[in-house]
Design a protein around this nucleic acid. Structure first.
Length: 376
DNA sequence: TACAATT
């Protein structure tokens, strides 16, 4: 593997070759964080001073499964490496998606930026740039921002935050299909104190003439996640659960549904009558899973997962998306979730049937999602 | 307990 890299990287069209080689590496959602600069084997001179500013690089957005050896091989193809480090989670050893490379020759560092920055590896486009000197003052300077107006661009967000300090990276998360903003983003400042000031100044504030205030807080660091939560997350990501005791219930729902239709239950579609004028504020929406009716499901147990929502709503018709809202730290369900259904009639039927339904010890409350809680 | 979002 290492030799393959060394050989192929001498040739033009490196991107294509690399993608073939790395194609076997498993794709993984979630980008690498723009990590804080970390000590990278500093070599202290006799005067005790070190200047790595022209040789030490930070590499962001590496594919999740790239190994230390592959990392070293890729960047070692440019020139002699003084040291390099793929940053990994302390507990699990998983790559955090970024690393550092310190070249012997500043010219090679420059060459690495010109050659490898923007290189596409699997689903990622890697970023290669000079690393800032390691310092406590630049740690924990990453902010998570939510409630942004959907129309706000990354540039506009930067303009809003730039009054508090130097921005190192920023990002607005977008719907993968439509490309529309999800109203959530990240801002990494150069200094932690700048991030603190931005929280003081902007958290709970309305940008420009925005209708709603934004939330600004320190971003959670994936490496701070507990090992248990991480394992739970990995398990939930890959496991496909099958219904146990729930199965007979879904069969009953399906039967109810068929009976209702067979006996001509009134199927009122406001769309056909008044063009949705009576439905302002309810859950018709576009989204990653396509347009549909978003349903709010309340009183789920902390252990609830997506499969229960599929099981409950699937029998009523086309379900394009389900989501259990979890606490980011504990991975426990926060008590509610969302279901998107394509057709109004089927969504209405599901709501009418499932609202008040007892699931285990809990009575579900099911309704169309409202855009704002204070609205009726 | 009541309407998300974590690169």
């Amino acid at each position: 593997m290492t030799n393959q890299f060394d050989f192929i990287l001498f040739w033009p069209g490196v991107t294509c070759c690399l993608q073939q080689i790395l194609g076997a590496m498993e794709s993984q959602v979630g980008g690498g964080p723009a990590g804080p600069a970390l000590p990278n084997g500093p070599l202290l001179g006799t005067n005790g001073a070190t200047d790595d500013s022209k040789t030490n690089l930070i590499v962001n957005y590496l594919p999740q499964n790239m190994t230390q050896d592959e990392f070293k091989s890729l960047f070692g193809s440019i020139g002699d490496i003084e040291s390099c480090k793929l940053v990994r989670d302390k507990i699990t050893g998983q790559s955090l998606g970024y690393g550092f490379v310190n070249y012997s020759d500043p010219n090679d560092a420059d060459k690495a930026i010109n050659t490898l920055n923007g290189l596409k590896l699997q689903t990622k486009t890697i970023k290669v740039s000079y690393a800032r000197p390691s310092s406590a003052s630049i740690r924990d300077a990453n902010l998570y921002v939510s409630g942004l107006p959907k129309t706000m661009s990354q540039k506009e967000m930067e303009q809003l935050f730039s009054q508090y300090g130097r921005i190192i990276t920023s990002r607005i998360l977008v719907d993968q299909v439509t490309g529309v903003s999800r109203g959530v983003g990240f801002i990494r400042f150069d200094k932690r104190i700048e991030a603190e000031e931005a929280i003081k100044g902007l958290n709970g504030q309305k940008p420009l003439g925005a209708a709603e205030p934004i939330t600004v807080k320190f971003a959670n660091n994936p490496s701070q996640k507990t090992g248990q939560a991480l394992l739970t997350h990995l398990y939930q990501s890959s496991a496909r659960r099958y219904a146990g005791p729930l199965h007979h219930q879904t069969q009953r729902f399906r039967l109810d549904n068929l009976l209702n239709m067979a006996y001509g239950v009134k199927r009122f579609s406001p769309i056909a009558i008044d063009g949705m004028s009576g439905l302002a504020g309810v859950g018709l929406s576009g989204g990653a899973a396509g347009a549909g009716w978003c349903i709010f499901v309340y009183n789920l147990s902390p252990e609830a997962d997506e499969s229960v929502l599929w099981q409950l709503f699937g029998p009523f018709g086309a379900v394009t998306n389900v989501k259990v809202i979890r606490d980011f730290t504990t991975n426990k369900c926060k008590g509610f979730g969302f279901v998107t259904m394509t057709n109004y009639d089927e969504a209405a039927m599901a709501i009418a049937s499932l609202n008040g339904y007892r699931l285990g010890e809990r009575v579900l409350q099911v309704s169309f999602k409202t855009s704002k809680q204070h609205k009726a």
